[in-house]
């Protein structure tokens, strides 16, 4: 059977392309529910904020809470720890950004930008490398060289303001939105 070739698109060409386009859109539309069902459900998204009572936490103590399924660090810093965090210049930090959800995204990672009250350090307990929970230093058992936290999975070291100082982690520990509802109580989230 001979085929006629013309420069002009025919009605058949149009129908062919249109049918294909409808099929492609239909396939994409049908695929989306199967992809999106993997995302967090409404019940997960509705996870409430938490309140933390600070009174039992002693000076120098770091306590881990659970917030949205992840560990949350609350540390009552000693004057020495605050001093250690302030002694370092921002230009020497691997990640110079505060990573504080309470501040603008480009705030520098000074110690003042990492806490609302300098005595109380609050951040996510998720190592920014691959999500392990770092171990907190205590005066008796230091973890890493910077007095803060050491992640045993891959050796990332954080200082007393939760800033990455050494190891593979790319960012400082993330600080979630929180506020003091009373001098001894914070609301996170």
């Amino acid at each position: 059977m001979a085929t006629t070739t013309t420069a002009e698109p025919t009605r058949r060409d149009f129908l062919y392309v249109a049918t294909g386009a409808v099929a492609a859109v239909g396939a994409a539309a049908a695929a989306w529910p199967f992809i999106d069902q993997m995302n967090p459900s409404s019940a997960v998204l509705a996870l409430a904020s938490i309140e933390v009572d600070l009174t039992p936490i002693q000076v120098g103590q770091s306590v881990t809470f659970v917030f949205r399924g992840h560990p949350l660090f609350v540390r009552r810093r000693s004057p020495k720890e605050i001093e250690m965090a302030r002694a370092v210049s921002v230009s020497d930090l691997p990640d110079p950004v505060a990573r504080n959800d309470n501040l603008p995204a480009d705030a520098p990672a000074t110690d003042a930008n990492r806490e609302i009250k300098s005595e109380w350090y609050v951040s996510s307990g998720v190592c920014t490398h691959l999500g392990c929970t770092p171990t907190a230093s205590t005066p008796q058992i230091p973890q890493g060289e910077f007095g803060g936290w050491l992640c045993h999975c891959h050796g990332s070291q954080y200082d007393t303001a939760g800033r990455i100082r050494k190891g593979p982690a790319p960012r400082n520990l993330q600080i979630p939105v929180y506020s003091f509802v009373s001098p001894t109580r914070i609301k996170v989230g």
Partner: peptide, 13 residues
């Protein structure tokens, strides 16, 4: 990662 987990952390989903 969130899509793989079905949440904000590894969990039941």
């Amino acid at each position: 990662a969130t899509w793989l987990w079905g949440g904000f952390a590894v969990g039941d989903a």
